[in-house]
Write a protein that binds this DNA or RNA. Structure first.
Lengths: 106, 106
DNA sequence: TTGACATGTGACTATTTGGTCACCTATTCT
DNA sequence: AGAATAGGTGACCAAATAGTCACATGTCAA
């Protein structure tokens, strides 16, 4: 399994994306805290976090008996750069900004 | 199945990413042209292209008996914006640029 | 040191997904 | 018209994945 394969497979699951969403709002969370939000066994959540770690999307640091999880945005940026070059970036970025504004206004 | 689910599932397969890579270099390609590169039945490729279309990552236009495929970067940018805000973008972008330079030099 | 809490592990099952088959339709060119 | 070419379809099989279980380890705090 290649590195990028791990990243994309990790992102393919909605639970894992939800975990990233929560870490995006605020990271440094523990397993138990992340679990509280989900309709799933703690072990289920652990397996998902493990996948995210293996992909490098989440980095973790132990602190005593707790394990703190942090979001790592680098692999996400690499996905972006793989299919969006600098020239199209301006155009596309403007487009998505417009989309967001319209969604807020409407 | 939600929109974003379709996008991430579509990206989860290496063959489909390879198709996007080829369309990134030059798009407007036909099914047959895209097939030539792959160790797979034409129908296998068709199924993959179908998944990419359903996800909005590829848009297609018929021209006579040919179907031309184009890369749509918008969903990719939305992935980026989901987990990278404007403030971290500068930092992360600088980091990945450095990474690429180092890989070229070394 | 003892109880409570946070995290870690191997084996099993149901479902999803990637790939192939044989066969069909539509367009082009002579 | 008719041969060649580009694309499209439903049913099937093998492999990968999400989720659960019961049980084990390490750390804190009284």
């Amino acid at each position: 399994m290649t590195d990028d394969d791990r990243v994309f497979k990790a992102l393919a699951d909605p639970t894992r994306r939800h975990l990233l969403d929560r870490l995006f709002v605020r990271d440094g969370r523990t397993l138990t805290e992340l679990e509280s939000d989900l309709e799933m066994t703690r072990f289920g959540v652990m397996k998902h976090l493990r996948v995210l770690e293996d992909a490098g999307l989440v980095v973790a640091r132990r602190s005593g008996r707790e394990k703190l999880h942090y979001l790592n945005p680098v692999p996400i940026r690499l996905i972006h750069d793989r299919w969006i070059d600098k020239y199209t970036e301006r155009r596309v970025s403007a487009l998505t900004e417009l989309k967001k504004e319209l969604e807020q206004t409407g």
